[in-house]
Design a protein around this nucleic acid. Structure first.
Lengths: 200, 200
DNA sequence: TGACAAATAGAACGACCGTACTATTCTGGT
DNA sequence: ACCAGAATAGTACGGTCGTTCTATTTGTCA
């Protein structure tokens, strides 16, 4: 890894932290430069434009998300256990300072077309697809009923996560974690295969 | 209504629209001034500071929300019908250009303490309480089971709305409305009093 | 080790920001 | 119709923004 790449990576790590807290447009090159001990122009040269920096930050966030949330879940058994692991890991991800990068960024960019938005859409779609895939596996493993719609369940889980974010980080409701877990359990229970005694 | 109040109201109406699209910190006094045909300083004099303008915008948003979403729901019968009306009205509210003001603003202000955040917290808490109240009424009207937790249901509905916002406005998923409605129906079904044939 | 390229710094730019101060125009009550 | 006070405009200031251009330092490889 060349010196330049090293610096670039250090910049992105800090940029991701700052963007999680202040939002992606709350990132300023001057501020980021002094945070990383570089000159404004020295930092700027690594990206060439603010927009390219934003794209790089989104990609860095995605990289970390895959690493912290998705990959560890693969160690859990296919089906419901893995889905639970994804949920738990996501909750932990949302506990970092500033909350979940993607929650803030998606509302920030939703009316601002361009490469940063496109990169973010791709990342979030991947995540939703991953959730749906985990549900689909739970169906094929017969943890969930066969009439469960994976995309629908993924949609509802995503909503729960967003709700948790608002209630916890914005409203500061102390009951939030319990509420989210309860909602998740209710959804799982509704999706679960009927207990043996009914029918066959 | 004095001339000053009239102008102030016109400013706030436009400011609310712009803030819904560009976010509350995307609002700039210069831009807002030219949008309303006032001079920068003339507009500024109405509020005294950017922060006071932001508070006023949040209050304007709350005012419109009460008027467009809450009040019309009161015309519907107490209980489940009214809860449905609240849900439907909220969906319509979220269809305006820029989506739901509160969704964007709450992620924008969640790490920025101060009067604007306080005003927004108040508004959103009121809305969540209103949802919970509607659920509570549905319980007392025996539309919902007596062990239904109104705050929990309000939490889950709020999450659905947030999910709908992300899937519709950000991901631009055409299936979103159906998904949200289905999630809502599933929640209602789970909350509904058991059908007559069971037990009694 | 020397040379060439990569990495970083420095200074300056035009634009826009929120805010202050002063001047002008308008409005409403008598 | 006048006049006090409200409403609005004009101008300027210091600050930060992203970006450009030109130097200078640093790393890398023959």
């Amino acid at each position: 890894m060349s010196k330049g790449d090293q610096t670039r990576q250090a910049i992105l790590a800090r940029a991701f932290e700052l963007a999680t807290i202040n939002g992606i447009s709350g990132l300023s090159i001057g501020r980021l430069a002094e945070e990383t001990g570089l000159s404004k122009s020295g930092l700027f040269a690594h990206f060439g434009s603010k927009e390219a920096l934003e794209v790089a930050v989104v990609e860095e966030a995605s990289r970390q998300f895959v690493q912290d949330v998705m990959v560890p879940a693969l160690r859990h058994p296919r089906g419901e256990p893995r889905l639970r692991a994804l949920f738990d890991n996501w909750i932990r991800w949302g506990q970092r300072p500033g909350g979940c990068f993607f929650v803030g960024a998606s509302t920030e960019l939703d009316e601002r077309p361009g490469p940063p938005r496109d990169a973010l859409v791709r990342a979030i779609k991947d995540w939703v697809d991953e959730l749906a895939k985990a549900v689909r596996i739970a169906v094929s493993e017969r943890h969930f009923r066969s009439d469960v719609n994976p995309e629908q369940v993924a949609f509802e889980i995503y909503g729960m996560m967003l709700g948790m974010h608002t209630f916890h980080r914005f409203l500061r409701e102390p009951t939030t974690l319990d509420r989210a877990k309860q909602a998740f359990e209710r959804l799982l229970a509704a999706s679960r295969a009927a207990t043996p005694r009914s029918r066959s």
